[in-house]
Design a protein around this nucleic acid. Structure first.
Length: 290
DNA sequence: CACTTGACCTGTCCGC
DNA sequence: TGCGGACAGGTCAAGT
């Protein structure tokens, strides 16, 4: 669920909340969530200062003064939540509906800083992970090697997007957008939102798209994602930012989770279908297969 | 080789 | 009320 706008929002939050802090203690209850052994953690993470937080695609990178980096993938239900030592979630707190007192049963990694504040990695479904690796090796991770351009990279043009999509002529355009090697950071929410904005049916085969479609599509991806970043991302079920707060983009969504409501462009009813194995939201009038 | 489906997990919702 | 099954979706491995 966390896609580019959600991970970007977490990154921005962490930059102001944890950069400059020194790690005092690290605990984990699940080797799948945090596979590093105690020796590595003790040597390269404990008593170590956080110097930067970065994002590439849907991956977060927390750089440390030891030239090691904590690489984090939230996958579907992962959360990275910072809690000041005096702060309490729960009753009365605006985020109580999504987060209670931490740690809880979904907490798999707990970082304690020297000022007794905490960073919690929570993940209901345990698909996400945190890994400690040398900073110089981040770019060598298989995922980093094959991931495509960032949507907001000025060097990415509609022509380049078209060329990257052309490797998947027989695939449905939605499946291609979800392929991280084609373009970075698009997931189910912003694929649907972008295809609506570009007036393209998600099941259209890539080979049927024309140059103008890629102009519209790239613009649509950028518009939906920049609005989403502005609104703090989308909270469908689990997503929260680094302060434990939900995002508001879904109040502004055009089709995602809006089945049964009317399309704001033409008034026809938005429907939910299945494309490329994913729940998919479209306006059947604006988005035709042709 | 190109493309699709299943596995990884757990919580929630729906129908019986 | 309880229970089984479908569903949610990011990514990789396995299958067609």
């Amino acid at each position: 669920m966390p896609e580019l706008p959600e991970v970007e929002t977490v990154k921005n939050g962490l930059q102001s909340l944890i950069v400059g802090k020194t790690v005092k203690k690290v605990g984990s209850n699940n080797p799948k969530s945090f596979p590093n052994d105690e020796v590595e953690v003790e040597q390269f993470l404990v008593k170590v200062k956080i110097i930067a937080v970065r994002r590439r695609a849907k991956v977060l990178m927390i750089d440390l003064s030891t030239n090691y980096t904590l690489v984090v993938h939230l996958k579907m239900t992962g959360q990275l939540v910072f809690v000041d030592q005096k702060q309490r979630f729960g009753a009365g707190h605006p985020t109580k509906s999504l987060i209670g007192d931490l740690p809880d049963k979904s907490t798999h990694v707990e970082f304690t800083f020297t000022d007794n504040s905490h960073l919690y990695f929570n993940d209901q479904r345990k698909f996400g992970w945190v890994r400690l690796i040398p900073t110089s090796e981040v770019q060598n991770l298989a995922f980093m090697q094959k991931v495509g351009p960032e949507p907001f990279d000025a060097k990415l043009t509609p022509q380049i997007l078209q060329k990257r999509c052309e490797k998947h002529q027989k695939s449905k355009i939605k499946a291609v957008l979800l392929d991280q090697s084609v373009i970075a950071g698009v997931g189910n929410i912003y694929a649907d939102e972008s295809l609506w904005r570009a007036k393209l049916h998600p099941a259209r085969l890539t080979e049927t798209l024309r140059p103008k479609d890629f102009v519209n599509l790239l613009q649509a991806i950028r518009e939906s994602m920049s609005l989403a970043i502005q609104k703090g991302g989308s909270t469908d079920r689990n997503y929260v930012n680094a302060k434990g707060e939900r995002g508001n983009y879904l109040d502004f969504a055009k089709v995602f989770r809006r089945e049964g409501l009317s399309c704001e462009r033409c008034g026809h009813e938005i429907i939910k279908i299945r494309v490329a194995g994913r729940g998919t939201h479209i306006c059947p009038h604006c988005q035709k297969i042709k």
